[in-house]
C-alpha cells in the first residue's frame, strides 16, 4: 500500500512538470507587451521597461524563466504580478469562491443525481424512469451557458426569486442556483450512471441470495445493492470535482461571480504567465489528487482490489 502510494505520487511529478511547462510556454508565447497601459496614457519610459524586464527576468531564455518559476513554486513565494499585486493574495481571494461553487455543484449532483438514479434503477421501466431518462438527456444536451442564461432570466429577472448576479462575498445561499447550473450536466450523468449500475446489480446473483435469505427489502437495497453499485458513481464524482472547478468559468461569467474564471481571463490578456500557470497547475493537481483518492476509495469499497 505504502509503495503503491509512493509510486502514484512519483507519477505526479512528470505530469506536473509537463503541464506547467506547456502552459508557461503558451502564455509566454502570447504576443504583446506586458507593460502596455501600465503607465497611464503615455508609453512607459524605456528605463521603466528595462527595469521591470530585469526584475521579472523576461529577457532570460524561456527554460531559465520556467525554472525560476518552479523555484518560486517550491519556495511557496509566487511573487507579484506586473502591476505589483501579490499573486498568492489574489489566488486566496478567488479560489475559495470557486471551490465553494464546485462543492455546491457536487452536493447537488449527489443528492439529486443519486436519489433519482437509485429510484429509477430499482423500479425499472415505467413513467418515472422515462421522465428521468428524458430530463437527463435534455440536461446533458443543454450547454451550461444556456442553462445559466435561462435560469438567470427566469429566476432572476422575470420572477425575482434570486439576484441575477452574485455579490462579491458569494455566500453559500447565493451559490445554489449557479451551483445547479454548473453541476447540471454532471448531475444528469450521475443519475444515469447510478441507474445503470443499480439496474445491473439488481439482477446480480448476490442480490438474489440476499432476497433468498429473507433479508428485508430495505436491507437488500441499502446494504447489499447500494455498496456494490456505488463504485462507478464514486469514481465519476471524484474525478468530476476537478472538472467542475475548471468548468466554473462559464457559470462564473453568467452570474458575475468573482472566482478564478474571471481571474484567469484577465491574466491571460495581461500576459501574467506566473498567475495563469499557477491556476492551471492548481487545477491539474486537484484532478490528480482526486483521481488518486478515488483509486484508494476503490480499494475500500471493493475488497477484491488490492494495491501493492
Amino acid at each position: 500500500m505504502g509503495r503503491y502510494l509512493l509510486r502514484r505520487l512519483l507519477q505526479f511529478v512528470p505530469v506536473f512538470l509537463g503541464t506547467t511547462f506547456i502552459v508557461y510556454t503558451l502564455v509566454w508565447a502570447v504576443p504583446g507587451d506586458p507593460f502596455a497601459g501600465k503607465c497611464g496614457e503615455r508609453q512607459c519610459p524605456e528605463t521603466f521597461i528595462s527595469l521591470m524586464t530585469d526584475r521579472y527576468g523576461l529577457n532570460d531564455p524561456l527554460v531559465v524563466q520556467y525554472f525560476t518559476y518552479l523555484g518560486k513554486v517550491v519556495s511557496g513565494n509566487l511573487g507579484e504580478t506586473f502591476s505589483g499585486v501579490s499573486i498568492s493574495e489574489q489566488l486566496l481571494n478567488s479560489a475559495p469562491i470557486t471551490v465553494r461553487l464546485a462543492i455546491v455543484a457536487l452536493l447537488i449532483q449527489i443528492v439529486i443525481g443519486v436519489v433519482a438514479g437509485v429510484m429509477t434503477g430499482i423500479r425499472g421501466r415505467g413513467f418515472l424512469d422515462n421522465l428521468v431518462l428524458v430530463s437527463t438527456l435534455l440536461l446533458i444536451s443543454l450547454p451550461t451557458f444556456v442553462t445559466g442564461s435561462v435560469l438567470q432570466i427566469l429566476l432572476g429577472v422575470e420572477w425575482g426569486i434570486i439576484d441575477p448576479t452574485v455579490s462579491p462575498e458569494a455566500t453559500w445561499g447565493e451559490l445554489i442556483v449557479p451551483g445547479f447550473v454548473l453541476g447540471a450536466i454532471s448531475m444528469a450523468y450521475v443519475t444515469r450512471l447510478t441507474r445503470t449500475s443499480i439496474a445491473e446489480n439488481r439482477r446480480a446473483d448476490y442480490v438474489r441470495t440476499a432476497i433468498a435469505k429473507g433479508q428485508p427489502t430495505r436491507r437488500v437495497v441499502f446494504v447489499h445493492l447500494l455498496r456494490n453499485s456505488a463504485i462507478p458513481v464514486v469514481t465519476f464524482l471524484g474525478t468530476d470535482l476537478g472538472s467542475l472547478m475548471g468548468g466554473a468559468i462559464v457559470t462564473e461569467g453568467v452570474f458575475n461571480i468573482n472566482g478564478i474564471g474571471g481571474l484567469i481571463f484577465r491574466n491571460i490578456a495581461e500576459k501574467e504567465g506566473v498567475m495563469v500557470t499557477t491556476i492551471v497547475t492548481l487545477l491539474v493537481l486537484v484532478y490528480l489528487l482526486m483521481s488518486l483518492a478515488v483509486d484508494l476509495l476503490y480499494a475500500v469499497l471493493d475488497p477484491r482490489i488490492r494495491y501493492e
Partner: peptide, 24 residues
C-alpha cells in the same frame, strides 16, 4: 502520463489558454 497532462487540464480553461495565445 503524457495523456494525463492533457486530461488534467480543465477543458474550457485549456481552450482559453490555447486560443488566446494564438489570437490575442
Amino acid at each position: 502520463r503524457f495523456g494525463d497532462i492533457f486530461a488534467g487540464l480543465p477543458f474550457v480553461l485549456g481552450a482559453i489558454v490555447i486560443l488566446t495565445t494564438f489570437n490575442p
